[in-house]
Design a protein around this nucleic acid. Structure first.
Lengths: 338, 338
DNA sequence: GTGAAAGCGCTAACAA
DNA sequence: TTGTTAGCGCTTTCAC
């Protein structure tokens, strides 16, 4: 049951192994009748082509690599789920490649790993896709790839939401509640997305005639602890903010904890909002107003596009830069119990 | 740089390809001098054996599969991190295999996938490893495997903490705070670990002469929402508990949210504790008292053991059942600001 | 201790 | 539309 090979299928279907190969790879020039015969033979024998043999002969590995650097578990899980859906649909497998984006040797190491594992395609998440040396190495290797970000190299696919617009919407929600002194905890400086979000914040503020007080903007790193630090800084100012916008949910949760420790009531004493619609945003108290981005959908599309290039499928008409919609999620951290 | 093959290394080292193969696989019967020559040639050429070719010729895939069913992202990320460490150390790769543990066709599908991908080894997490039909299929295939659980089949490796003892410790902490009416939100009925935790709770209660009121035990499913439901049930009793123990942190966080909504002050009005030391337990307010289990260490060890079997390395002396230590993490949800 | 030969199961290039 | 012949890069015999 375990050792069914292409010859077995060929014998049972009464054709040559090459024909079986054609059918298994959806190649043209096979009559419908033959194709059906082969397919049923394969099904009856429970035949699955050996990945190793395919890889060796065809110099394709049927592996898509996921390159990431210590993202939040929730983000990682969602990305993986989306990628796996697309991979499974096309009989590709997913290979994980954690790395450290600040390591100067990383691009070379990734390049070597690409060569060894013969990865057919690559999906790259922030902040790794914001490392120029890495992107250059990937481009040079000529591997089809996608980034979950708004900017890919010349040959790459970019899948993203409009982070600036999303943060603008979120900021306008807060402004609409009547706040004028709004604190901002920025995201990791190595993430381009963090800069986009900050842009969105500043754009919305300016659009509403609100000055951006440098004392109201603090540096964060997308992690919970930096959210705590940022909130402590903001709230210790002589003229503290009445609302805090964090560039992601983890930091917003950190800010929330600090606020609770200080005995502040959310949202009456202080409004706090996040970004990402992570599970955490729903699990803290009160639940956080945030922005949802369809990470799993984006990841699925990224993998599907890469696989389409691999299989030579007709490129969809849409541009290589795919923008997904975002959505405001209004919750009690800004609205109260209304 | 990309197309270095074994012949190149052999030529440079002045030996046959078989000798290179011997060196690359740490086989015996190679003189020190030859070994060194081959190794430096390989290093200079930046040679990496092709996984496909290795797999085809040796009928090994150098792939370890991870079989899981919708665990919490934090758990999944930690397991993956541990596995990847062990895999990278031995030049194995990790293949992800999400599945649905209640799907009756799942064991057969997994078996087929095992055959296709020629996975060399398998790591199985709860609750998948608690599905008898699956475990039977895996045993039948004869693939080396490990479960992150306390019970493996005859040929398997089990890596776990003593969940019963851990929950006993946690319960005793709560009892030690003076509570006698303690609510319990049980874990998913398909998880053996959930039953172990419940045992631990009951053992501790009995040991301290406390009756287990059936009205104080509610069914949960390890997810946030079931924690909310459970807490609502418990707190709506005519004689509600003064402390709630949840079988994991996600459910404890749900209970916490319900308590906040009811205006209860934690821990003075109600003590809430969880289990797992997930990031969430630190990110809610107040932070949750919980039990830490070294998931990444356990996963690393599981993979290392499986790989050791694969490479025929001497089996460590320790038994196949490996128990890791757990640790109580006392935080404000039971202690207050002391 | 080392090497030559023979595949592993597939796909690529060419024939038929 | 289908089949034949060579490999892909490595490991496995089995020889020396």
């Amino acid at each position: 049951m375990s050792k069914v090979i292409i010859d077995d299928v060929a014998a049972r279907a009464g054709v040559s192994i090459k024909t079986v190969s054609r059918v298994m790879n959806n190649e043209p020039n096979v009559s419908e009748r033959t194709r059906d015969r082969v397919l049923s033979a394969a099904r009856e024998l429970n035949y699955r082509p050996s990945l190793s043999a395919r890889g060796l002969a065809g110099s394709r590995s049927y592996l898509i690599g996921l390159l990431y650097d210590n993202p939040s578990p929730a983000y990682l899980a969602e990305v993986q789920a989306g990628l796996l859906e697309a991979c499974e649909a096309s009989h590709y497998s997913l290979a994980l490649h954690p790395c450290h984006h600040e390591d100067p040797g990383m691009p070379a190491a990734v390049s070597a790993a690409l060569a060894q594992a013969r990865l057919d395609g690559l999906i790259i998440t922030p902040p790794v896709c914001n490392v120029p040396a890495l992107m250059a190495a990937v481009e040079e290797r000529g591997v089809p790839y996608a980034v979950i970000s708004d900017e890919a190299g010349p040959s790459g696919i970019a899948v993203t939401i409009d982070e600036s617009a999303a943060m603008r919407d979120l900021t306008e929600h807060v402004i609409g509640l009547g706040h004028t002194r709004i604190g901002f905890i920025a995201g990791h400086p190595d993430h381009k997305g963090a800069a986009r979000r900050r842009d969105g914040f500043e754009t919305a503020m300016k659009a509403h005639g609100l000055a951006i007080d440098p004392a109201m903007v603090v540096q964060g790193y997308f992690d919970f602890e930096s959210g705590r630090h940022g909130a402590r800084d903001l709230l210790s100012r002589t003229n503290p903010p009445s609302a805090i916008i964090a560039a992601n949910d983890d930091m917003a949760a950190g800010a929330l904890q600090v606020a609770h420790d200080k005995g502040l009531h959310i949202p009456t004493d202080l409004v706090i909002v996040g970004f990402d619609d992570s599970p955490l945003s729903r699990q803290v108290w009160p639940p956080l107003t945030t922005v949802r981005q369809p990470v799993a959908d984006m990841a699925r599309e990224a993998a599907a596009r890469v696989i389409a290039r691999l299989t030579g499928a007709a490129e969809p008409d849409n541009p290589a830069n795919l923008a997904f919609p975002h959505e405001l999620r209004l919750r009690q951290s800004s609205l109260g119990d209304t």
